[in-house]
């Protein structure tokens, strides 16, 4: 069993940071929704408050890690230009997708949307985390802030979901591959 370095980075970006962020975001949405719809939210214990603040901070780290690895590690491999006359485009995912009318929209719609919409996730969740961390239990006095934090967190979730969906599909049709090969295990012949 082996994996290439580029595939490993894609895995870290998508499954490590992106998918974990989506999971964390769904949990945060439930908690923020419960907190927001209540006219008089229950007072959290200091432990619960600390946990929520740490949870939001972890989400900020995951969101920024996902977009930064995506834009500065994987995207350059994705958009690499193929030398003129290259017949095998498997090492040039963008060119591979654009070479066929059955796959071109995975780039022109999927990647073109994903590469920009993904950034709304860290911007929105950074704001949400700042408000939660700054106000803590005092947030129960600010219904409008709670509603805004919930809404921006929802947009963050949607943006990350769009980016994650297209990332997975693009990597299915034109995987980012190459680089050093890492041997994970040596199988035995049957």
């Amino acid at each position: 069993m082996e994996i290439t370095m580029r595939s490993l980075w894609t895995l870290i970006h998508g499954m490590g940071f992106g998918a974990l962020y989506l999971l964390a975001c769904s949990g945060a949405l439930v908690e923020l929704y419960r907190f927001t719809i209540s006219a008089a939210p229950a007072e959290p214990t200091p432990g619960q408050e600390r946990f929520l603040k740490g949870y939001m901070f972890a989400m900020v780290v995951l969101a920024w890690a996902a977009v930064l690895t995506g834009a500065y590690v994987i995207y350059p491999w994705y958009r690499a230009a193929a030398p003129p006359g290259t017949a095998d485009l498997s090492m040039f995912p963008q060119r591979l997708l654009m070479s066929s009318p059955t796959t071109i929209d995975w780039h022109s719609l999927g990647m073109e949307w994903k590469e920009h919409v993904a950034w709304f996730a860290p911007i929105s969740i950074t704001m949400a985390a700042f408000v939660v961390i700054k106000y803590g239990r005092d947030l129960k006095h600010h219904r409008q802030l709670r509603t805004a934090v919930l809404s921006f967190t929802l947009v963050s979730f949607l943006a990350a979901g769009i980016a994650g969906f297209f990332g997975a599909m693009i990597n299915k049709y034109a995987p980012v591959q190459g680089g050093h090969t890492l041997q994970l295990s040596h199988g035995e012949e049957k």
């Binding site: 950034w119 709304f120 911007i123 929105s124 950074t126 704001m127 700042f130 408000v131 700054k134 106000y135 005092d138 006095h141 600010h142 409008q144 802030l145 805004a148 934090v149 921006f152």
Partner: peptide, 19 residues
Amino acid sequence: SILPNGSGVAAILAAGIGS
């Protein structure tokens, strides 16, 4: 000890502007 909302509102508007 109710905090003023200005700091939160500033963060929300800035996020909208940045996006």
